[in-house]
Design a binder for these strands. Structure first.
Lengths: 223, 223
DNA sequence: TTTTGTAATATTGTATACTTAATCCACATA
DNA sequence: TATGTGGATTAAGTATACAATATTACAAAA
């Protein structure tokens, strides 16, 4: 603890940050629909700020791929074709694989315990058929794994990718028949990490995402 | 050619885009040094625009990781520790691997020809000891490979990651003793892609980046 | 000489004002 | 009815103005 006197001026957030996260939430939650036009004055009024922070927030959302800009016309919530989702998941698969293999290399016993704990919670949520809990524990599991990987850039990147497809999550989690398979995969992952078997961890993690991808693809095809 | 009448209104670029790319170039080329403070009025004056486009450009650079913001103090060019570079390269390795395996799956004969062509050019640049050409042809090679992967998000992502470590490139390309190894790896990559061997392509590509990573690590250690 | 307090100065954060392009709609014309 | 045309309206792009905070300079006191 070499910084016990460092006060947290970090509590201060510029308006643009608040606007940014607010808008991002809205897009991810689907409050702003894909294709919807985002008008600056309107948004500014709604949030009670001026156009400036709104514009700056939009710039960031643009780079994050959640909105698309048409010059001289404005900003629109990015549409998400199933093609896009597939692209993102293809990427996530290898990044999750990397995260898992790094986690296997770096995990402490405490990390492993934490992972096991979450898997248990996930199981009971599955028994209760509680979809919201299911989503949250799944998130938690992956969060811990990312953290354990110790690669900060990787963590950032994956969370950005997760956001991009989050809009689909509820859809496919409710559709899923066998959460059983997810449990099984989580178990294998923990095993591999606990056993410091980075190659196996990687393989399992990649399959894990691929499972999701197949799921989405099959849902899409039914449409 | 289903769009032969589509005119290119796309030529128009808002100032913020110009400012954004200009500043990004400056950072990547090292004209703006890591840690350097970026002051809005000064930048705006230099480029002959107002603060607004500059601020918006900075927001994007921030999300791209080239700039870090300290609230109420300003923007600074992001420093890049060798730790950071390692993190990025770790990620790039698997993404290049993915790109290579997708390329192997999707490559047409034309793509393969193009790749072979670039490898030849790279070889002659190596003979001439022309570092700049070497860098450019290496870039070209990878660009074609990415394009061939057909995954647009992946292309975006990799190019963003490349930018982040570009500031080190000249350094390690001049240091490199055996461009021979790079040539060899490029050859193997083309072979694998031509032979539609996605697993081998992936393995070679990952090693390829790992080579770079080791190189950087060794340079760093000498300091 | 060093430290502390205070004024001034500079810079970011936010809001507003201005400019110009795009869109809409009424109306005219074929 | 269909198709232009011109002006009004709207919104984005850009610049500027104002407010809040941080930095600096410098003087006064220890």
């Amino acid at each position: 603890m070499d910084n016990f006197l460092k006060i947290d001026m970090d509590t201060y957030k510029p308006l643009r940050e608040i606007v940014f996260t607010t808008m991002r939430e809205a897009i991810i939650n689907g409050d702003f629909k894909p294709g919807q036009r985002l008008m600056e004055v309107q948004l500014a009024d709604q949030m009670g700020v001026s156009r400036t922070p709104v514009r700056e927030a939009i710039r960031k959302l643009e780079l994050e791929g959640l909105v698309v800009m048409v010059p001289r016309k404005g900003a629109y919530v990015a549409g998400l074709s199933s093609e896009d989702v597939k692209e993102v998941l293809e990427i996530r698969a290898v990044l999750e694989g990397l995260a898992a293999s790094l986690a296997a290399r770096n995990a402490t016993e405490k990390d492993v315990e934490e992972l096991k704990d979450i898997v248990e919670k996930f199981k009971s949520a599955a028994n209760e058929q509680d979809v919201v809990k299911l989503i949250n524990f799944d998130s938690d599991f992956h969060d811990v794994m990312y953290r354990t990987s110790k690669n900060k850039k990787l963590i950032q990147l994956i969370s950005s990718l997760r956001e991009q497809v989050q809009r689909f999550r509820v859809a496919y989690f409710t559709k899923i028949k066998s959460t059983q398979q997810l449990i099984e995969e989580h178990n294998q992952l923990v095993d591999a990490i606990a056993g410091k078997d980075s190659e196996r961890a990687r393989a399992v993690a990649e399959t894990h995402i691929a499972t999701t991808e197949k799921l989405i693809t099959s849902i899409e095809e039914k449409k």
